[in-house]
Design a protein around this nucleic acid. Structure first.
Lengths: 341, 341
DNA sequence: TTGAAAGCGCTAACAT
DNA sequence: ATGTTAGCGCTTTCAA
């Protein structure tokens, strides 16, 4: 049997479609009597509004896109887990896209190529695109950028203070008496902005302590994953003068590095102390658990969702704002040893 | 400026909307000449079809829902990473939903409550719903169920042979000379079907080897996560007669268990051998890496997507089929020690 | 092969 | 407070 339409309900209840619409959407005031009649008709027919028709009439899809480089990166998975319910609470569905860091794919998305109108706004964690590329996006698209970029006044940006956090992480290692602190995860201009900010914080911490930076201890990696961490760590341990501590630009990098250090029969943190970034659950269960920079993911998710929906709901084009979420350093056994319990 | 519509293109090209539609969709035959004219007009106006309108006219959303209990479970994240591109290749978007294993939420989804018509089909990994509950779903909804269930002839089911895989995993431990093999992850009827199949395989392996099952070594856990693995392992190690090997019903459980074993100063695999299930990347980087049952995730994803889209495309209601994907046992250091390299 | 026109089911401006 | 009605932009039947 055909699905009941709003019109069917109106006919059965003996009112106009307009009134049914009012009841369904909670608009305007409707007499208690009328409302009851309409609701009875809705139940009787098992009426469910057709989202597709509503979308067309509204010119809105009721969906936001969340674009991340990799879905199986725990940090993004944890972030998504916070974003989805937040959006749902506000009546929005989330469309997830992974780009694999492909610049063309990313560019197409912010231009709303292809699937135009499928989403009303976007939360975007760019990887392959440089700051300037973001300017080419569809200026009508309500956009919140996650991560390390700096807002250019057009879109919003939500993230933690990467320089400060990296400085703290590095200072933590130096404060533990380490003198040869390596960094794994630097990336070249122009796309590796997140990485560059972290390297900047790493340098600042050295300056603060009056220590020189041994440039050969700053290792570049293509991504922030376990394999990159392992590879870089192997390289570092093959040296005649290996580091006694490493600041890793993600927890995955730290876990990859940890794997290699233990494999070589070295001890963590006695021989090499390790600190990561992101505070993913996996880092709390590794052996030893890894110290890390913990960004307030729930705040980041909530802010990003609220802001993109505000933009969608607003008539005027809102100016881009910059939001800094909180972060804190969590010291675990990979830096402080048994002292961390 | 307003977005160009199909009508605008038709006007400019001097043809009817019908013809433009034919060109855009590659339908029917269109004269080379007409097509060229239309295409020129499309370029000139920067015309992009309005997906919302198309959806309404077609009565299709062009989206499939993928419903998983938890997005931040690496197994699901890895599966999704395979599902999304496959669906995209076939012109479909993926809508991701997480249920937290909430039975009501799951029930609502398979009934297409609320957001009816938002998706044309669904790939569903149930957790809170029992086999019988699935029968209440909207029978019109093209549905592919993932995991352990058995198809009831209405929907499709894609998964590996859990009993066989669990039997292999347990046999692997027994074959290594272990005699007190525990199992972590059993769950009670009626919802814990996946778990029960694994327990069944565990028992079979004992029968095969002529060993009795010590029922007190079969530990129930609410979920399959790290914390459950840790808790259960603590419980087992507190006994006077702890096990010398553990079959864990997921890699996360195994990682949680591993954490506890090492924390107590015991050795893996010398004191306790551990094997997991799912072959998530994390298990390859733990120390030691964990042995596991590796399901063919790419095949599972591809089969599920293809099947649900076939159902969507088909006029008649297809009968439910049962698809078994391949799996294999991967022996790593958590069971075979240094021998695994 | 192409045109004309009737929906798809809902929203909202306008009217009462 | 409720009814009337004209779209939203596309697809597709029916005619030509």
């Amino acid at each position: 049997m055909r699905e009941a339409t709003l019109r069917d309900v109106a006919l059965l209840a003996g009112v106009s479609p307009r009134t049914v619409s009012n009841v369904v959407n909670g608009y305007a005031r409707v007499t208690e009597h009328t409302r009851a009649k309409v609701e009875r008709a809705i139940d009787e027919l098992g009426y469910r509004p057709n989202v597709l028709a509503r979308n067309l009439a509204n010119g809105r899809s009721g969906q936001i896109a969340v674009v991340v480089p990799y879905l199986d990166t725990p940090y993004f998975a944890e972030l998504l887990q916070a974003i989805i319910p937040r959006a749902r609470d506000r009546g929005y569905n989330v469309l997830i896209d992974q780009t694999d860091g492909d610049p063309d794919h990313e560019r197409e998305l912010i231009r709303r190529g292809g699937r135009a109108l499928l989403f009303d706004g976007m939360i975007f964690s760019p990887l392959g695109l440089a700051q300037d590329d973001l300017a080419d996006g569809d200026p009508e698209l309500p956009l919140v950028v996650l991560g390390e970029r700096v807002s250019n006044g057009v879109f919003d940006h939500v993230g933690i203070d990467d320089v400060a956090a990296s400085r703290e992480a590095t200072a933590h290692l130096i404060g533990l008496g380490r003198r040869r602190v390596a960094a794994i995860g630097d990336q070249p201009y122009p796309t590796g902005e997140a990485a560059q900010l972290r390297t900047c914080g790493y340098r600042r911490a050295h300056e603060d302590a009056g220590l020189p930076v041994d440039e050969s201890l700053v290792i570049r990696t293509p991504r922030f994953n376990r394999a990159d961490g392992s590879g870089a760590m192997r390289h570092l341990l093959d040296r005649d003068d290996p580091p006694d501590a490493v600041f890793c630009y993600s927890d995955l990098v730290a876990l990859g590095a940890l794997h290699v250090v233990l494999e070589r029969g070295l001890r963590v943190p006695e021989d090499v102390a390790l600190i990561g970034y992101d505070d993913i659950e996996e880092g709390r269960y590794s052996n030893p658990p890894i110290s890390t920079i913990s960004p307030d993911k729930v705040a980041i998710a909530a802010t990003a969702v609220d802001r993109v929906l505000d933009r969608i709901g607003s008539e005027e084009r809102l100016p881009g704002i910059e939001v800094r979420a909180a972060h804190r350093l969590i010291a675990r056994r990979s830096t402080v040893g048994r002292a961390a319990g």
